[in-house]
Design a protein around this nucleic acid. Sequence first.
DNA 1: TATGAATGAGTCTTCATTCAT
DNA 2: GATGAATGAAGACTCATTCAT
Lengths: 213, 213, 213, 213
Amino acid sequence: MASTSNERLIESAATCMARDGYYQTKISDIVKGAGVSQGTFYWYYKNKEDVVKAIFSEVEQGLLDVVKIGYRQTMGTRESMVASSVGLIASYLRYVREHRDAIRLLTRCRQDADPVVKELANKVVRHVEDAFFHNIQRAKALGMIPEQRSTDVQAALLMSLVDGMTYRWLFTEVDNDKDIGQLSPEALAEEIVSYEFFGMLGAPEEKRQMGET
Amino acid sequence: MASTSNERLIESAATCMARDGYYQTKISDIVKGAGVSQGTFYWYYKNKEDVVKAIFSEVEQGLLDVVKIGYRQTMGTRESMVASSVGLIASYLRYVREHRDAIRLLTRCRQDADPVVKELANKVVRHVEDAFFHNIQRAKALGMIPEQRSTDVQAALLMSLVDGMTYRWLFTEVDNDKDIGQLSPEALAEEIVSYEFFGMLGAPEEKRQMGET
Amino acid sequence: MASTSNERLIESAATCMARDGYYQTKISDIVKGAGVSQGTFYWYYKNKEDVVKAIFSEVEQGLLDVVKIGYRQTMGTRESMVASSVGLIASYLRYVREHRDAIRLLTRCRQDADPVVKELANKVVRHVEDAFFHNIQRAKALGMIPEQRSTDVQAALLMSLVDGMTYRWLFTEVDNDKDIGQLSPEALAEEIVSYEFFGMLGAPEEKRQMGET
Amino acid sequence: MASTSNERLIESAATCMARDGYYQTKISDIVKGAGVSQGTFYWYYKNKEDVVKAIFSEVEQGLLDVVKIGYRQTMGTRESMVASSVGLIASYLRYVREHRDAIRLLTRCRQDADPVVKELANKVVRHVEDAFFHNIQRAKALGMIPEQRSTDVQAALLMSLVDGMTYRWLFTEVDNDKDIGQLSPEALAEEIVSYEFFGMLGAPEEKRQMGET
DNA sequence: TATGAATGAGTCTTCATTCAT
DNA sequence: GATGAATGAAGACTCATTCAT
């Protein structure tokens, strides 16, 4: 509770920037949110760029920790692969839900922030995609996924899927969003992973079911 | 040739805003790019919001025209469905490549622009997603796609895929981007559609091929 | 009378900066003095540095025009040399009195201004000293002044004399200043030139007079 | 060795202010240079004005001690007068060279500092000029210098000479300054005194030498 | 239609100064 | 004696917008 000025500043900065964007957030908004004076901001940070860096470095590690756990060591059945993927994506979704502000800030800054911050944000996301890439590569090496398709493209497709759905899930206003925002992390993860592995046509058993119907 | 001030303003605005973002683009940048005076801008437009609207209304119809062609009327084989999807996505990609600036502007404004413009941009994208939704629904009605999964979610997944890959394809610097930026619209469309229908595990024939190897 | 905003700005800037110094002069002071708005300043000038440059380039030419007239072409008597020197210094003094503000600004900026402005101010003064140097050199070439002493040092001594006395004459408050501030340009010029040529011991005829007394 | 915080503050203040000027020197610069904290400054001094006063009171006495030694008691030859003047100016130059920072600070503060400090700096210089004044007056009383010219003006001329040349000698960058900066205190003193007494036309013996050549 | 001078509110940033520890 | 966190007033600069011509 008796948080330090510094902590209050970081938190307020994340909240404001997630809500209003990097450029639209004024230092005066941040300090108002933190309940400190204008000068105090500059005691801790050189400028806006500086706070964002601090926020990013916190979030990057968290994200990577989650994604790297997905690294598969041994062969398994297709079912176990799918199940562990669902588990991975679900942890990812739980993580981002816990860190909504930082994640939204990250997403926004990839498009709108000054060049240094932009590049930093993209680097974070690139690191996550790299982790996805290695997971796919490993699955191919273990013979669990066919090798025809480019792993680069597949990692990009997966990243697009996860990224886009995360945004829809967390940040799109409900009335526009049908029911996606209501899904549990696990349910959404299941949808994503099903799509990831089987596409719109679904898993064989699903197809079988369909054939039977 | 001798384009009007108005045309030059629209074009300059699109270029500047695509490059710098909505808020970061100054009226003075736009008029500089258009080679007219500050006052002239205000003769044609009330403010920044006003130009963006003009740009958006141009692009929305184009996008919808492309997507609505994909609306399937009659039953066909799975192969023809996939082929026509590839055709659809490829036209989409060709279209956005032709209208890079407007598309990038649209994408950026969904996240960073004043509320009215933001909502406008999101509406355009929502319309595209609706078109996807109806295409999927129709395919389900024709029995070409299993019906278990929520069409809402599937449309969102497809939109994420198309949106994310479009961004990667057009706007990410090459060195970070491996070879995605180099793909032809057709090749990229093929990758997306394959993923869309069959996921990472690939189409049955691909799996068969793999099995035979 | 109906002077332009630009003219009013230049004049106000010179007045303020002469009075308060480069760094202590606020843009808000300048615009207040000019009776225009803050924004108007920035329409005409990039910043403080920019106005000062404009002021300096005006004054430099004026100063050089005065000093260069002193360039002696033909041999003459010692009396004519002294007389023409008095004329030169007197015009110089009249000029600086007419341009008090610019001159004071120049003097202050040689010590206190940002590096670019400082260097600019010093350059102006160096040009004046160069003109003095050439005048002395020419007088030596014509055999009117002994050649033992270094012309560099002599020019510097003369510059110190003129500079220091100008400052005392124009800018030192009277009560501290005995009667120097009351002298006419011609009287002060006569004092300076007498010292310049004959030093404290005075001209021969003066010495003679003294001897006779 | 282990100098006190107070000593370190004084020294740092002199260094910073000599280099950057009164107004441009921040308290934070001073404490950085002294290696103490911001708060410590305010333990010893009320504000910037306060430190400068401390610095000035140190330097004033030193300067006066040097100049007052020049006070002539008894009649002598013109040569001895010149020689003792050279000695006086040379001590002065040695002194200011030893106290460069304080001297530069003093010089700068005469033009740019807040009114109290400015007046203080001017008072120091006025005291020096008074000492010059009395020396000249005494020389006149002893009949060693003609009396026509105003002693006030002569003292001011001498002060200008000494002041200007000191500045040139110590503080002007070499490449702009030809060789003045390279002179020894004695050589420069000789130049100044020769000019002081005989002006540009030189001493009689010099003129004779010239005539003989 | 078109110009560009003029405005002033809005922000970032600096820095002397205070004060609890 | 000494620290350094905290303050807030002051000042530079930006930029959307207006308006007379």
